[in-house]
Design a protein around this nucleic acid. Structure first.
Lengths: 324, 324
DNA sequence: TTCCGGCGGGTAATCGTTTTCCCGTAAAAC
DNA sequence: GTTTTACGGGAAAACGATTACCCGCCGGAA
């Protein structure tokens, strides 16, 4: 290509990148030659030379989970705006797989890593290793210790809003159906729930059912709750997947929502508005979370800056699954 | 690292890769040195030298669509099994964005490309360009002309099964709510619907509502159908998203499913089993599709082999949204 | 006329691997 | 005892870009 333009390789590079002035004549010739030959710079070579791949790695516990899907979508979109691409990995809720995927991404020299660690303790080594070599931000969940920046939602606030709402609507006995506290969000939401209930005289914890953040867990919990013959006034779910499964099974059992029991979820996945009745839930501002994460990835000027935690406030979306 | 092991760089490389024999002694020393220094081969350099990045690009119209999510998940999983990673892009249903993303992936020297082209005609240039430089397979949708391999479901068969089922259950007047025929699946499913109905004496097309593959389109169609005051016996939807929206709106309008009208979908996204009533739908064998796609990506031995089309058969999953 | 500065262009080093080619040695063949 | 053969190891070229460094030319100033 440079030869075709009749200049040296160096000059061609400069003409295209514009990182040094060239005569208009040369610029023109190079431009034309590039177009004629349909020249495309080899980004691999650029990466090797420039020590920057413009690729960001991302590891989530499950691509299939609608909440993570939303996050992936938002991050991908923000990244595309700055000419970067997303290398996506699924850890399948397994810290061992997660560690392998992180390692693979690091070997690929990603410029940054966004990770939702599946386990608050077992994921520590992987996250730490990542943080040692590239800008890393944890999203949604985080591991123990101040290892990296984190961006997520203020779970305490979200759960509080939900519990307050349920109590306002007259609920006295409230159950919690959430995730097993291996992941940080599961634990934090459970603790926030306990505190929120304890802070309200007259409100008590009717039951706790801890499993994974899945539809299936919601269904199981609903069956158990129903079988116990002693339904609570309201049920707060650890996320919407659980709530969706729970609603489904309650309806199948003939339980009326919200007349017999109110149900609230967490996340506000797209489907929450489509359940029957539509689900009251705590909405995570996903686009904002993604934007913050991408910003943190790009902007760590002070290398030894202490890790920061950005907790944006969620908002309660009141629909028909909680009694008026 | 080689110096630490007391051998040349070449020997170290050979010892680690095992692509040529080395003495056990040397192998040992290199191994140890690598571990002590925590050596990680730089995959960028490997890619530059070996002309293979072990990265596969993927472009889908919308990451958020549950069906594409399933596909992405399955492809990612299959890829991970062979040490490759997935560079994921969202074209946002826009051929212009799609073209840019494809170009970006090609510049990154991806080893292969999986694409669900958003438009059967407008996406042609992008797909063709991709096919010129890397193994490319179209998934689900395809563009006009025999440009690349394709793997997807046998839409004709799926629609036929659905129509046959509806007719068997007594439906005479059947409506179709699908996607606008810019994408190939939308068109093919519509045509298959027309043929299937025409092939059955006594069965007629009650209405056609074409829009996009979204929940919102389903809702709109339901409102229109209901407003017309003349509901068909059954409604076949172009995909499950549409069906989900439609079901929701029908219920809101007090229409009973399947007593007043039967509804069937296409894809069998996870949520189809959770609607009320659970949705009868045509199931796409997503894992199988993904596996085929990855196989095609890897195994094109004859370079000038004519493009192949792999249409796997879907199966009808009968749930409660169609009358018994 | 001479010197100097600036500017535009070229040469070559560099990024970190893999692989080709060559060389020396030791074992095998005669 | 000599010649081949095989094999393990090293030097260096390549992959395709960016960039540090150098050099020649031209204009202006002394």
């Amino acid at each position: 290509m440079a030869r075709r333009a009749g200049v040296s390789i160096a000059t061609a590079s400069r003409a295209l990148s514009g990182r040094r002035r060239v005569t208009p004549d040369v610029a023109d010739r190079v431009q034309r030659a590039a177009e004629e030959l349909d020249y495309r710079p080899n980004t691999v070579a650029q990466a090797l030379r420039g020590q920057s791949t413009r690729i960001v790695g991302m590891v989530v516990p499950g691509i299939g989970d609608p909440f993570f899907t939303q996050i992936v979508e938002a991050v991908e979109h923000d990244l595309a705006g700055s000419g970067r691409e997303l290398l996506l990995c699924d850890s399948r809720h397994d810290p061992a797989i997660e560690a392998r995927r992180v390692r693979a991404l690091l070997e690929r020299q990603v410029d940054g890593l966004v990770i939702t660690p599946c386990d608050a303790t077992a994921s520590v080594p992987a996250v730490r290793e990542a943080a040692r070599s590239v800008p890393t931000v944890q999203m949604d969940r985080y591991v123990e210790g101040d290892v990296t920046d984190w961006v997520g939602v203020d779970d305490e606030s979200g759960v509080n809003q939900a519990v307050a709402h349920l109590a306002d609507r007259g609920a006295r006995r409230v159950a919690f159906v959430g995730g097993a506290p291996a992941g940080s969000t599961a634990r934090v939401r459970l603790e926030a729930f306990e505190r929120a209930v304890a802070a309200r005289p007259g409100v008590t914890v009717a039951a706790r059912a801890l499993g994974d953040f899945s539809v299936e867990h919601g269904r199981r919990a609903a069956r158990e709750l129903h079988a116990s013959g002693d339904l609570p006034d309201a049920i707060l779910c650890g996320n919407d997947q659980i709530a969706v499964g729970l609603l489904r099974e309650l309806r199948a059992a003939g339980v009326r929502v919200p007349a017999d029991v109110s149900v609230a979820g967490f996340d506000d996945i797209g489907y929450a508005a489509l359940t029957d009745p539509p689900l009251t839930t705590v909405r995570q501002p996903v686009p904002q979370l993604a934007t913050e994460a991408v910003r943190l990835l790009t902007a760590p000027p002070a290398p030894a800056r202490p890790p920061c935690r950005i907790a944006v406030s969620p908002t309660l979306v009141i629909r028909a699954s909680t009694s008026p």
